[in-house]
C-alpha cells in the first residue's frame, strides 16, 4: 500500500516582532514540529520522519507559505532515505515541495540529505515562488547510495521564480534510469554526493557577488538575477556538508555586514 501525504504550514508575523504558525499540518510520514529557534524573529519548524519514506510508489508533498514580513526556518531531524519498498513493479515515488515567500519575508529551507538507496526510484520536485523583496536560503543534497552500495534512480528538479520571472531551473538525473554519461567526466566523475546552496536576496541587485571557486569541485556563482548558487560535488555526504556549511556561514555573515 503506497502512502499519499501532503503536509502544510503557514508562517505569519505575530505582531510582536516574531513569527506565528497558524497552519502546521502533519501528514503520514511528514510530521511537522515547532522547535526552539536560536534566532528569535524566526520561527523554526523541524520535519520529523514518522515512518520510513518514501518507498517506491509513495506520493509525498510539503507546502509552505511564508507571508509578507514573516521569518521561518525549516530543517529536519534526519536524512530522507528513498527506499525500494515491497513491490518491485511500483511507480517511482514522488516528493513535491512547494514554497511561497512573500514581500520582505525570509525562508531558510535547510532539510537534511536526500539519500537514494539501491533499488529506489524517486522524482523530487521543488518549486519556489519568491516575491521581489523576499529572501530564500535553500540547501539540497543528493547522496547516491547508502555506504558502499550502488545508487537508486533519482531525479530532482529545482525551479525558482522571483517576481514571476524564472531565476533558477535545474534538473539532475542519476542512476539506472538516467541517460548514459551521468557518472562520467562531464557530470559527476564518480562523485557520490552533490549539493546546491541557493541564497536569493534583494541586496544582490545592487551588489552582486563575484564568482569564486570553493576548492576543486565547488563553485559559488552569481545567477542572472539577485541570487548566488553554490554547486558542489564530493566523495561523500560529510565532505559535501563541510563545503556547503562553510559557504553558508560566509554568505550569511556577508548579509549582516
Amino acid at each position: 500500500m503506497s502512502v499519499h501525504a501532503r503536509a502544510r504550514l503557514r508562517a505569519e508575523p505575530d505582531g510582536r516582532g516574531s513569527t506565528a504558525l497558524p497552519v502546521l499540518e502533519s501528514a503520514g510520514p511528514l510530521a511537522l514540529r515547532r522547535t526552539r529557534s536560536p534566532r528569535p524573529p524566526y520561527a523554526r519548524v523541524t520535519v520529523v520522519g514518522a515512518m520510513s519514506a518514501p518507498l517506491n510508489g509513495d506520493r509525498l508533498a510539503i507546502e509552505a507559505e511564508v507571508a509578507a514580513g514573516a521569518r521561518l526556518t525549516v530543517d529536519a531531524a534526519a536524512a530522507t532515505v528513498a527506499l525500494p519498498g515491497p513491490r518491485p513493479d511500483a511507480d517511482p515515488s514522488t516528493y513535491t515541495v512547494n514554497l511561497t515567500v512573500g514581500e520582505g519575508a525570509a525562508l531558510h529551507w535547510l532539510p537534511e540529505q536526500l539519500v537514494s538507496a539501491h533499488g529506489s526510484r524517486l522524482h523530487q520536485t521543488t518549486r519556489v515562488q519568491l516575491a521581489a523583496t523576499a529572501r530564500l536560503l535553500l540547501r539540497e543534497e543528493q547522496i547516491l547510495g547508502r555506504h558502499g552500495e550502488p545508487t537508486g534512480a533519482l531525479t530532482t528538479r529545482l525551479t525558482v521564480h522571483r517576481a514571476g520571472r524564472p531565476l533558477l531551473d535545474q534538473q539532475l538525473t542519476y542512476g539506472p534510469d538516467a541517460p548514459a554519461g551521468w557518472d562520467g567526466p562531464a557530470v559527476l566523475a564518480g562523485h557520490r554526493a552533490v549539493g546546491q546552496l541557493l541564497l536569493a536576496d534583494p541586496s544582490f541587485e545592487d551588489a552582486p557577488l563575484p564568482a569564486r571557486l570553493l576548492g576543486p569541485t565547488a563553485a559559488l556563482t552569481p545567477l542572472a538575477g539577485p541570487a548566488v548558487l553554490v554547486t558542489a560535488v564530493a566523495a561523500d555526504a560529510r565532505l559535501l556538508r563541510g563545503i556547503l556549511d562553510d559557504a553558508m556561514r560566509e554568505l550569511l555573515d556577508g548579509l549582516k555586514a
Partner: peptide, 21 residues
C-alpha cells in the same frame, strides 16, 4: 516555457568557472 527541460551537469558548471580564470 517553464516545462522545458532543465537538465544540468554539476561538473560542467563548476569547471567552467575554474577554466575562465
Amino acid at each position: 516555457i517553464d516545462a522545458l527541460p532543465a537538465a544540468s551537469a554539476p561538473l560542467l558548471d563548476i569547471t567552467a568557472e575554474a577554466h575562465a580564470a
